[in-house]
Structures are given as structure tokens and as C-alpha cells.
């Protein structure tokens, strides 16, 4: 039976690609439901309240109910909006996240597309996110959205640089641009995080990841108390849901990427590899949420100064360090 299916798909590679695409897209839509539920519960725990309780056991279906509600809501397009870009922006955000998941190995062999330049691909594709935010901010014809979009571009571009530099440190250190290759290196030589240059790279990556997914203290582009909701102020219904979903899926992805780069991906004893991947991801997501609900938000000039005056020089020096120590 399984052999028959395998054979069928080997004969029809396009169909196989289609199945994989559908699975990935649904995964990208479903994972935010889980992440949002976890986030709400953790927020509740931190703020000494209970979080969702009533929809389903322990409120597990609350997020699904919210998603359903958003589906049924009216899709409002503001007058004077640049309609083409306004419609397009949420899908670009979503697609860029799906594309990132495409090359991410969850366990040995569990990868939609084995690519030998996966790291480069991810860096390139994740930049589409910035484009979508700018598009949304500009096309809404709302000054708050525009300010949010401008902040987002300034912030994401500044943090992209130290992030890429710290990822490159890993690449040079392990001598591979493929995520599977990087993980296999770690299975052999121990997790990257225990090696000094990568330790610094991991720290920088962590800070930049916070900024990349707009989490407190870097949640300026959608600073609720200042810009109402930033770039997605004018979005409603399903279009808003796509932004929301892609944000949380991104949250998941950026930690999964970190797990692959620094924490050995699926590597771990006893438990099956896929469980190890998810375990590492959720521990990191917990840390992100912990941070989100604790400190206040920084100001735009403080954020940019931090990126350019501290993170960029440190990550550059660290990159040289990694190259010097890494495998040839």
C-alpha cells in the first residue's frame, strides 16, 4: 500500500509537490492556533489571571473560534486605499512564511524541499515580510499605518544585518549552507551553542529574532498605545487574520530556525526527533512570551542605535572569529 503510494507520487512529481504545498500551507495556518493558545495561557499565568477557559476543554478552541469569527467578519477596505497593494500585502506576508517552512527540516528526511542553500533562501525569502508590512502601511491611506510601516522597515532592515551576520557565523563554522547539513554537523560534533563564537552569534540572533517578529521590547511597528495598531490598523476580517497568522507562524519559524542553527535541530536522546524539534521550539517561544509580557517597549531611536552601534560591530567581529575557528 505505502509502496504503491510512493510509486504513484514518484511518477507524478508535480502532484507530490502539490500535496506538500497544501500540507505546508495548512501547517502554517494551524500552528498559529497552537501558538496563540499557548501565548494566551502564558500571558494569563504571568499576569495572575486564567486566560481562555470556556471554549472547549481549558479553552483550547478559543483561538479556532476567533479565527472563525474573523472569517465571517466583513472585509472593509478604506476609501482612498491603494486597493491592489492593500489586497496583496497580507498574502505576501503569509506566503513568505510558508516559503520559509518549505526548506525547514523537522526531523531526518522530514523536509519539503531539500535545498543545499537553504540558509540563503530563508534569509532572502523572509525579507518579503518587510515588503508586505511596508505595502500594508502605505496602501492603507492611514497615517498611523504609514508611521507603523516606516518604523517596521527601519527596524527590520537594521536588525536583518546583524541577524544575517550571526547566521553566517554558523555557516562558516559548520561549513554548510544546508540546514540538514548544519544539523548533521551538530549531531556529530555537539550542539553549536556550546562553541564560543556561536554562543555570541546565538545571543545576537535571539535579540534580532525578537525584533524581526515585532515582539516586545521591539514591538514598535504595531505599538498599540501609540499607533493604535500600526501597519494593520485598517485591516479587518480574513485579511487581518492572515497578518496575525503569519506573525505567529513567523514566531514559530524563527525559533525553529534557531533550533536548527544552534540547538542541534532534531538531535536529542530517547524521544523521537520530531518531538525534540517541537520541544526546543516551544521552550524558545516560552522565553519570547515571557519577554513580551515583562519589559516596556523601546523607542525607535534607541532601537536603531542599539542595532547599528552595538549589534552590527559585535556580530562582524564575531563573524571573523567564527571564520578563524571554523572548519575549512
Amino acid at each position: 500500500m505505502i509502496e504503491a503510494i510512493t510509486q504513484f507520487f514518484t511518477q507524478h512529481p508535480l502532484l507530490w509537490a502539490f500535496v506538500k504545498a497544501v500540507v505546508l500551507a495548512s501547517f502554517t495556518l494551524v500552528i498559529p492556533l497552537a501558538v496563540i493558545y499557548v501565548e494566551r495561557k502564558i500571558a494569563g499565568f504571568i499576569q495572575s489571571r486564567l486566560g481562555p477557559l470556556h471554549v472547549g476543554p481549558q479553552g483550547t478552541f478559543q483561538t479556532a473560534a476567533d479565527a472563525l469569527k474573523l472569517l465571517l467578519k466583513e472585509d472593509i477596505v478604506p476609501e482612498g486605499a491603494d486597493k491592489r497593494f492593500f489586497y496583496l500585502a497580507p498574502y505576501i506576508a503569509f506566503v513568505s512564511t510558508v516559503l520559509c517552512f518549505m526548506v525547514l527540516p523537522f526531523a531526518p528526511g522530514w523536509v519539503a524541499l531539500e535545498m543545499n542553500v537553504a540558509v540563503l533562501f530563508i534569509i532572502g525569502v523572509s525579507l518579503f515580510n518587510v515588503v508586505s508590512i511596508l505595502m500594508a502601511g502605505w496602501s492603507s491611506n492611514n497615517k498611523y499605518s504609514l508611521l507603523g510601516g516606516l518604523r517596521a522597515v527601519a527596524q527590520l532592515l537594521s536588525y536583518e544585518i546583524p541577524m544575517v551576520l550571526s547566521v553566517l557565523a554558523v555557516v562558516f563554522y559548520t561549513g554548510s549552507l544546508s540546514l540538514t547539513g548544519i544539523i548533521e554537523y551538530q549531531v556529530k560534533h555537539g550542539w553549536n551553542i556550546w562553541h564560543p563564537p556561536i554562543m555570541i552569534a546565538a545571543l545576537i540572533y535571539f535579540i534580532c529574532a525578537l525584533a524581526e517578529i515585532n515582539r516586545t521590547p521591539f514591538d514598535l511597528p504595531e505599538a498599540e498605545s501609540e499607533l493604535v495598531s500600526g501597519f494593520n490598523t485598517e485591516y479587518s476580517g480574513m485579511r487581518f487574520a492572515f497578518f496575525f497568522a503569519s506573525e505567529f507562524a513567523n514566531n514559530f519559524f524563527i525559533t525553529a530556525f534557531a533550533a536548527a542553527l544552534f540547538f542541534g535541530g532534531w538531535d536529542g536522546p530517547v524521544l523521537p526527533p520530531i518531538v525534540w524539534t517541537f520541544l526546543k521550539v516551544f521552550v524558545m517561544i516560552f522565553v519570547f512570551m515571557w519577554l513580551r509580557w515583562t519589559p516596556p517597549r523601546l523607542r525607535i531611536d534607541q532601537i536603531l542605535r542599539f542595532a547599528w552601534q552595538l549589534l552590527v560591530p559585535v556580530s562582524l567581529a564575531n563573524l571573523l572569529f567564527a571564520i578563524a575557528l571554523g572548519v575549512r
Binding site: S48, P217, W293, P296
Partner: peptide, 16 residues
């Protein structure tokens, strides 16, 4: 004030 600056948790602590 906490919420204004983005520290949402302060709001719930103070209101408790």
C-alpha cells in the same frame, strides 16, 4: 502608564 509604554502586565498587577 505601564500599558502606554508597552509593559502590559503592570496594568493587571495594579488593577489587582
Amino acid at each position: 502608564f505601564g500599558t502606554d509604554l508597552g509593559a502590559t502586565t503592570m496594568f493587571l498587577y495594579a488593577f489587582r
